[in-house]
C-alpha cells in the first residue's frame, strides 16, 4: 500500500508545516511583550557595542573614558565579550529583545521600543544636548576641499541657513548656528555627498529641501561611514564628505570642515529594566567589564 504510506507522509508534512507556520506567527507577536515580565537584576549585563572605526563608537568611547589616552598610546578598553554590531537597527533589536542588554545609539534614531536612561540625571533630549548639559554628544561634520564648486558652496550655505537648520531640528538633532534665511543664487550643477551613515538621514532631508528650492541642482548621496567619506572627499570622488566625529589631523590638513548639527548619543536599555539613571562612570564600568550584573547598579 505504497499510496497509503505516501498519503500519510504528505498529510504529516502538511500539518507539521501548518503548525510551524502558526508557531512562527505566535513568536513574532510575543517578542515585544517582554516588558511585562519582572526584571531580574541578577542577570549578567549584555554589553552591546558598535564596531571599531564607527563614528558612534569613537565618540562614545572617548566621551565616557572607555578609550584611555596615555601620551601617544590609545587603548580601547571595551570588554572583549561585548556584542559587536555594525548597525543602529541591530543594536536596537538586541536591546529591545534582551532585558539585560545595554547599548548606545544616535539620539535621532531613538524610538519607543527601547528606553533611554538619563546620564548623570540629565535626560537625553535635544535641548540638553544643545545646552551642553547632556554629557555624551558629538558633532555632525561636513568637509570639503578648498576648490568647492559654486553649487556645492551654495548647498553648504543652505544647510547653515535658518531653513536648513530647521530641518536639523525637525529630524531630532541639535542645531549649531542661528543663520539667516537662505537667499542663494541657485546655481546649476551636480553635487555628490558621501560618508557617515549617521549623518546621511538628515543629509537626505537637507538635499531634498535644497533641490526643492534650487531646481537646477542635483545631489547624490553615498552612505558608508565617516572615514570613507573623508577619504572620498580627499580623493575628489565626492564634493562633500560627511563625518559623525571630529576630523583627524591628516584629514584636517586637506579639508575644510564645518559642523552642521550636533547629536546626542543615547544610552539605551530594555524597557523592562528598572534602571533609569546612570553616571558616566557607571557606563564606563559596564563597558570596560568592571560591572557585570545589574544588581551592582540597581540597589
Amino acid at each position: 500500500m505504497k499510496k497509503v504510506l505516501a498519503k500519510i507522509t504528505a498529510i504529516t508534512v502538511m500539518s507539521a508545516l501548518a503548525v510551524t507556520a502558526f508557531a512562527g506567527c505566535g513568536s513574532s507577536s510575543n517578542s515585544n511583550d517582554s516588558s511585562d515580565a519582572s526584571f531580574d537584576t541578577s542577570k549578567t549585563i549584555t554589553v552591546v557595542t558598535r564596531e571599531e572605526g564607527s563614528g558612534t563608537r569613537d565618540a562614545f568611547t572617548e566621551l565616557t573614558g572607555v578609550l584611555v589616552k596615555d601620551g601617544d598610546t590609545k587603548t580601547d578598553n571595551t570588554v572583549s565579550s561585548a556584542v559587536t554590531i555594525n548597525s543602529t537597527e541591530a543594536v536596537i533589536t538586541n536591546v529591545k529583545d534582551n532585558d539585560s542588554a545595554i547599548g548606545y545609539i544616535s539620539l535621532g534614531s531613538l524610538n519607543e521600543t527601547v528606553k533611554a536612561v538619563k546620564v548623570g540625571s540629565v535626560e537625553a533630549t535635544a535641548e540638553n544636548v544643545k545646552s551642553g548639559d547632556y554629557a555624551i554628544s558629538r558633532p555632525f561634520n561636513i568637509a570639503y576641499k578648498s576648490n568647492l564648486s559654486e553649487v556645492a558652496q551654495d548647498f553648504v550655505d543652505f544647510i547653515l541657513s535658518s531653513d536648513g537648520q530647521k530641518i536639523v531640528t525637525d529630524e531630532g538633532y541639535v542645531t549649531v548656528s542661528d543663520g539667516e534665511a537662505y537667499s542663494g543664487k541657485k546655481p546649476e550643477g551636480k553635487i555628490s555627498v558621501a560618508g557617515s551613515s549617521s549623518v546621511s538621514p538628515v543629509m537626505e532631508k537637507l538635499a531634498e529641501a535644497y533641490m526643492a528650492v534650487n531646481t537646477n541642482a542635483k545631489i547624490e548621496i553615498q552612505t558608508s561611514d565617516s572615514s570613507a567619506g573623508m577619504q572620498a572627499a580627499m580623493e575628489g570622488t565626492c564634493d562633500i564628505g560627511m563625518a559623525s566625529r571630529e576630523l583627524k589631523d591628516e584629514e584636517l590638513s586637506a579639508l575644510t570642515s564645518t559642523t552642521i548639527a550636533k547629536d546626542g548619543i543615547a544610552i539605551i536599555v530594555n524597557k523592562a529594566n528598572t534602571c533609569d539613571d546612570l553616571t558616566v562612570d557607571q557606563i564606563k564600568a559596564i563597558y570596560t567589564g568592571e560591572t557585570t550584573v545589574w544588581s551592582d547598579i540597581i540597589k
Binding site: S87, A90, I92, I105, S109, S197, P201, Q222, T223
Partner: peptide
Amino acid sequence: LNSGRSLAVHMYVLTNEGL
C-alpha cells in the same frame, strides 16, 4: 558612471539606518 542602489542593498541600508 552614476551610483545607485539595488533592491537588496536598499533593504540593507534601510535596516542599517534603523529608522
